[in-house]
Write a protein that binds this DNA or RNA. Structure first.
Lengths: 195, 195
DNA sequence: TTGATAAACGGAGGCACCCTCCGTATAACA
DNA sequence: TGTTATACGGAGGGTGCCTCCGTTTATCAA
């Protein structure tokens, strides 16, 4: 006893896989607009599936949130890869930061509201955090190697600056302001005299 | 026109005043347990009044929250006055910090969740913040004057440390840990050699 | 003291959200 | 093409938000 019999299981149903994807896309949109506290029923509505289907795929809000978050980190990494092949390495970094602001819009309230709430030893968040840091490190290494930016600022510093600037994300029209501040910051990173 | 006729208004009803007090007491308890997002119906239930009465006295959650917050700041100031008359000035500061942790428990999630959300130019929060800072400044001035603690740490620094340490307030059993950390911090403030 | 009345009370009601449960529909397999 | 494991949808019960209004009551004048 205790040995569960294992029957050759069927392959997952096609509609199930489709709905999962629809839910993830919808969750990205809805969390983007309303933050991680947004209504799950709104997610289901947006996805065009029943609320029961949402809960079957993602038993808790956290489960859904994590998948969305992991997806965003994937995109950030991919974006870093893409821009890093661009001409000017500093421009690549700048573009990446701008894209990251777009992601913070998606993760509205996420960093402040969830990261501290979750046990920081949580392997999931540790992993995604380090992946993000790695992406920034690669971007910066190129710019430093080319001598375009100073070498005494770490990827963590840049991310911290990014997060800090995004702290105003609750005020209306924050995004253009933050983008401008980031441009100033990037200018500050550049080596050589001004004017 | 436009001149509202002023009739000698009656004096406020006694039950109204009573209920307001009951609501404030209840709000303090309920916010203490559940943070500023706690159920207003729970507040009304705890106060033993109808939900309509709550909304009549405090038309918005913010209105209720502010009154509770102002009350807490009053207490912090009063406490600073009380402990400052105590024997050892460093001990006075330490006691005040411990009491402040109790207040953060009441204001669960308040600093992180509300302070940045509210426009920081908001006169209400500016005023309460400066009152709190003033209280700490007075406590520290005494300790500095007596030569017991270093003089290169500002009241704002101390408050920042307090807030930072309280960032773990979501984890179970955070309070004893924070109190211990604060004691260590206060020891760090002391002048003179160790051991 | 007693009535009139302004003021306050309480909670029902309409809406949204959370999550569970289960009858129905359907994709996978034989 | 039939069987059946799997997934679907949404009703339903609970909670909270806030408004509205019929009822109660404290105040004040006679």
């Amino acid at each position: 006893m205790g040995q569960a019999e294992q029957k050759t299981s069927r392959k997952p149903r096609a509609d199930s896989l489709r709905n999962r994807e629809k839910l993830l896309r919808a969750a990205r949109d809805v969390f983007s607009a309303g933050g991680p506290e947004a209504s799950l029923e709104a997610v289901a509505r947006t996805a065009g599936v029943g609320i029961g289907t949402l809960y079957r795929h993602f038993p808790t809000r956290e489960a859904l949130f994590r998948d969305v978050y992991a997806h965003e980190v994937d995109e950030l990494e991919a974006l870093a890869g893409a821009t890093s092949s661009a001409a000017d390495p500093v421009e690549a970094l700048r573009l990446w930061l701008h894209a990251a602001v777009g992601m913070v819009a998606t993760k509205k309230g996420m960093l402040a509201a969830l990261a501290p709430a979750v046990d920081s030893t949580d392997p999931f968040f540790a992993e995604t955090t380090s992946r993000t840091r790695g992406a920034v490190e690669r971007l910066m290494a190129r710019a430093v190697a080319s001598g375009a930016i100073r070498d005494d600022v770490s990827a963590e510093d840049v991310i911290r600056a990014l997060i800090g600037m995004c702290y105003t994300r609750d005020q209306p029209g924050w995004q253009p302001t933050v983008l401008r501040l980031l441009d100033v910051f990037v200018d500050g990173l550049r080596t050589g005299p001004k004017g």
